[in-house]
Amino acid sequence: MRKLLVLFICIALVSVSVFASGTKEAAFPERNIQIIVPYAAGGGTDAVARAIAQFAEPHLGQPITIINKTGGGGAVGWAEAAKARPDGYTLTMFAPNIVNLSIMNLSPVGYKEFEPILMFNNDPGTIVVAKKNANLNVVEMLNDNKYKSGGENPNFYLLTIQAQTGVIHQDIPYGGAAERVPAVLGGHVDFAIVNVGEAKGQIDAGELVPLAVMSEKRLDAVPNVPTLKELGIDAQMGSWRGLAAPKGTPKEVIAILEDAFTKAANEQGFKDFMKKAAFNIDFKSSADFWTFMEEQDVATTKMLSK
């Protein structure tokens, strides 16, 4: 009797969930979309994903769910996203590690396992020093290996500069900007390369001084700071974020997604959010985003093979 009851409950639940999921084909999207964020809730990538999701929902007409799946510097989340059914209902957030990790053999999947949709921002590396070193000449500093740097291992920002100058600085391995900023402030290292947003409070207060930015053009957030290119060192590197779908997602679906997310990204509300969080907006269409990643791939491979 009891066993029958159990069986009955099970059958009831199975049928409910089967009916609920539905099977008909209709115009995309007909149910909610998931974005796998390969970093923890509350971080920068997560914040961008949640913000764009909020603005894209009206354009897609379906709710967007954020799933944080962290681990391996992003590899876990991307591996999961690459395995997802390529139907446009599972997307993922990209960050520089999607290119870097597979070069370093630390991730089973790379950007080639995905179709890019849109790039949102690109925050160039900004070389910061403590107040007492404000008068240092940045070119001299980068050409003199007595100055110590603090950065993540491998420090792609510093490697990019070193590829130009040929001078190898001692680079003390630190975690994120939350560890690097105090290390510079406390005088434990001479300089660090961070994103402006990560050190804005200290820069505004004059405790940290930005000496140069690693971008093509000067940054709106710190317009008085020269680019390294102006100073004769052509080193550009940034930390960027974008959206992608698993490889094999139909072209029409990618087009619908690109259109909707581009509209969302161009809304004033999203732009205001990006400005407040000091993320440097740099939209790239699906095709441009792909080319951009290919360039990054070539440059990084060259850098690491040295």
Partner: peptide, 13 residues
Amino acid sequence: GGLIIMGLQPGPL
């Protein structure tokens, strides 16, 4: 993240 989104920049200032 919350502070920054509110447009408040933590720091000495």
